[in-house]
C-alpha cells in the first residue's frame, strides 16, 4: 500500500532520512524502531508528505497505492490525508487547538472530506462509536476542551480522531512514550483491537522494543537516518539468526525481570551527530564487532530468501550471504 523508495529527507545539509526503502502491505502492523534522533519521526511525516519546513524530500519518493506523493495534486493530497492515511502525533499533548472543543476538531475534518460521510451526523455518530472503542465517554469528550483531558485521554482521542474518516492506514508516532504504564497498556490493547476489528494497516514509530515485540508483525530498524535491518518480528528478534549488531545490542540492553541487575548492558557510546557522520558504517564507533571494512565502507541492505534485510558487513559475511557487489 505504501511504498517508500530510496527516500532521502534533508534539513539543509543534514540528511535526517537517507536512502530508506520500505514496503508496507495492507493489513500489516509495521513498526519503525530506533533511538531518538534517528530520523524515524521524520520518516513518519514523510509518509503523509507533511515534513515540516525547512525539511524537504531531496531524493526518492513515497508512493501511496502506486502513485508518488510528489506527483499528486493538492486536492489529491488533501483527500489522502485523513481519509486514507491518518497520523497520530507523538504525545498528543499539543495536537489540539486549545480554544475549540474536541467535537469541533472532528467537524473540521468532516468538513474537509465531505465524500466520506455525506451526512455530517453519520460522521459524528461514527466518531462517538470510536470514542467508545478507545474507552472514553463520547458525550463528555465531544464537548470537552483539550485542557480538560489528561495526557492518556488525549492520546486516545487522537487515535479516535485519526480513525474517524475510515482511513486504510494509520501512522502513529511514539504512541506510548509519554504515557504511564496503565495508559500504555490501554493504548496497546486498543491498537490491537482496532487492527483486528477495523482491519486498518498500522504503522508505528517507537523506541520501545517491548511494544514492538508485543504488537508488531514487521519491523524496520533505523540508525542515524539509515535503515539497518528490516523483516518480520520473529526474524529480527531471533537471537540466533542473522542480525545487525545494533539490534542485538538493543535487545541485550533490555533488563530482564528475573535476571541479575548487573546483567544490564546498555549500548555504549552515543548516536552520531548527523552533521558529522563517520565514514563507513554509521554504527561502527559503537559496534563490538567492527572490522576494518566497517570503518571505510557503508554496508548495503542484503536480503535473504525470506526477504529479511540486514545492512552489516560482518553479519552478512558470517552467515555466508554475499552482497551483490
Amino acid at each position: 500500500m505504501i511504498k517508500v523508495d530510496n527516500l532521502t529527507v534533508s534539513f539543509g545539509p543534514v540528511r535526517a532520512v537517507e536512502s530508506v526503502s520500505l514496503d508496507v502491505q495492507a493489513g500489516d502492523i509495521y513498526a519503525i524502531v530506533g533511538e531518538s534522533g534517528c530520523g524515524k519521526s521524520t520518516l513518519a511525516y514523510a509518509l503523509l508528505g507533511i515534513v515540516p519546513p525547512p525539511g524537504r524530500v531531496t531524493a526518492g519518493e513515497v508512493r501511496w497505492k502506486g502513485k508518488s506523493l510528489s506527483h499528486m495534486s493538492k486536492s489529491e493530497l488533501k483527500h489522502m490525508r485523513g481519509a486514507e492515511v491518518a497520523m497520530v502525533f507523538q504525545a498528543a499533548m499539543n495536537a489540539f487547538s486549545p480554544v475549540i472543543t474536541i467535537g469541533a476538531h472532528l467537524d473540521h475534518a468532516l468538513e474537509a472530506h465531505p465524500d466520506v460521510f455525506p451526512r455530517r451526523r453519520d460522521g459524528q455518530e461514527y466518531f462517538r462509536h470510536l470514542l467508545e472503542l478507545v474507552r472514553l465517554d463520547p458525550e463528555r469528550t465531544w464537548r470537552a476542551y483539550e485542557s480538560q483531558l489528561s495526557g492518556g485521554m488525549k492520546q486516545r482521542v487522537a487515535i479516535a480522531l485519526a480513525l474517524a474518516l475510515k482511513p486504510s492506514v494509520v501512522v502513529l508516532d511514539e504512541p506510548t512514550t509519554a504515557l504511564d504504564v496503565l495508559n500504555q497498556r490501554l493504548v496497546i490493547d486498543i491498537l490491537a483491537d482496532l487492527h483486528s476489528s477495523l482491519g486498518v494497516t498500522v504503522i508505528f514509530v517507537t523506541h520501545d522494543l517491548a511494544l514492538v515485540a508485543e504488537l508488531a508483525g514487521k519491523v524496520a530498524v533505523m540508525y542515524a537516518g539509515r535503515l539497518v535491518e528490516a523483516g518480520t518480528v520473529d526474524e529480527v528478534f531471533d537471537e540466533r539468526g542473522r542480525r545487525h549488531p545494533y539490534v542485538s545490542a538493543l535487545t541485550a540492553a533490555i533488563p530482564s525481570v528475573v535476571g541479575a541487575a548487573s546483567a544490564v548492558r546498555p549500548v555504549p557510546g552515543e548516536v552520531p551527530n548527523l552533521a558529522q557522520l563517520p565514514p563507513g558504517c554509521r554504527f561502527s564507533p559503537r559496534c563490538a564487532f567492527a572490522e576494518d571494512i566497517c570503518w571505510v565502507e557503508e554496508p548495503d541492505l542484503v536480503p535473504d530468501r525470506s526477504g529479511h534485510l540486514v545492512a552489516c558487513h560482518v553479519a552478512n559475511r558470517l552467515v555466508g550471504v554475499v552482497s551483490e557487489k
Binding site: I50, M87, F96
Partner: peptide, 12 residues
Amino acid sequence: EYVRAAESRGVG
C-alpha cells in the same frame, strides 16, 4: 503541533 495535526487530517 495542532496546526500540523489539522493538516494531517486534510483540513483545508
